[in-house]
């Protein structure tokens, strides 16, 4: 694989979706909500609500909220990946690109970079804001800075892997979808298992501790490797030109 080629493909995609504000909004909205709105909610619940939460519950809530970075990572790349793949399929711009000397792997890697980079950057930026604001709002109540800690470390390890899995799943989905919206709607379904895990931990079926998160990251890495081979087999010149609908 040629990184230079892949980067050119990614650059082209970046240039295209900077002209699509809806894609940018869809990418930054969730990290912004988790990174800014959730700390404000906690601040309100701890300090301003009539029925203020006890300080002892703050760490649990902060850990629970931070799971949304993983859920977000599973869903955010869908906006870009669907434009990047189904959008090109609709514009019929894949075939001329496939006629260049670039390999299928170069193009797939370029598409993966373009779909991963901005969402992961947005998630990390959101997480920095999240940690800073949470520490700012809870320092006085807890008496120490809660972040950074191993929990958010595991979250930030799992998030890019969830994003990678999302991109790979989108490659597979894109081979069967004929419009961007359907691809996005189908891709978003990937967040359901993560929401399931979140809800299960919230209702007390199990506690999502640092070890669980690390196991989750490992599982995501393993699933991503498996899905990569499916995506690679799906993203081949002949498949794209003859089987993609």
């Amino acid at each position: 694989m040629d990184i230079g080629n892949a980067w050119n493909v990614a650059l082209k995609d970046f240039k295209i979706y900077t002209r699509k504000p809806s894609v940018i909004y869809a990418t930054v909205a969730m990290p912004l909500i988790v990174g800014v709105v959730f700390p404000l909610i906690l601040d309100y619940s701890l300090h301003k609500s009539a029925k203020a939460l006890s300080a002892a519950r703050a760490p649990g809530l902060m850990d629970a909220f931070s799971i949304w970075f993983v859920i977000g990572a599973a869903v955010i790349p869908t906006a870009i990946a669907s434009y990047s793949l189904v959008g090109e399929k609709m514009q019929k711009s894949l075939e001329p690109m496939l006629a260049t000397p670039m390999s299928d792997g170069d193009i797939l890697l370029g598409k993966t970079i373009s779909a991963l980079l901005l969402p992961v950057a947005a998630l990390y930026a959101g997480s920095i804001s999240y940690m800073a604001l949470m520490d700012y709002f809870t320092r006085g109540t807890l008496g120490y800075y809660y972040y950074p800690n191993w929990h958010i470390g595991a979250i930030l390890l799992a998030a890019p892997l969830a994003a990678l899995l999302s991109v790979e799943v989108n490659v597979v989905i894109s081979s069967r979808m004929t419009d961007v919206r359907s691809a996005q709607q189908t891709g978003v379904l990937l967040m359901l298992p993560f929401i399931g895990l979140f809800l299960a931990s919230e209702v007390g079926l199990f506690v999502m501790n640092d070890t669980d998160l690390t196991i989750l990251a490992g599982a995501l890495a393993a699933i991503s490797v498996g899905t990569f081979f499916v995506a690679k087999a799906t993203f081949q010149r002949e498949e794209i030109l003859t089987r993609w609908r």
Binding site: Q91, E95, P96, T100, P101, M102
Partner: peptide, 23 residues
Amino acid sequence: TENVGLYEELSAYDNLDFYGRYY
């Protein structure tokens, strides 16, 4: 190709520029 398959959002210049990079 049978369908022109241009990047509709990009300028004419950029369409050619990216292909130049691909080569």
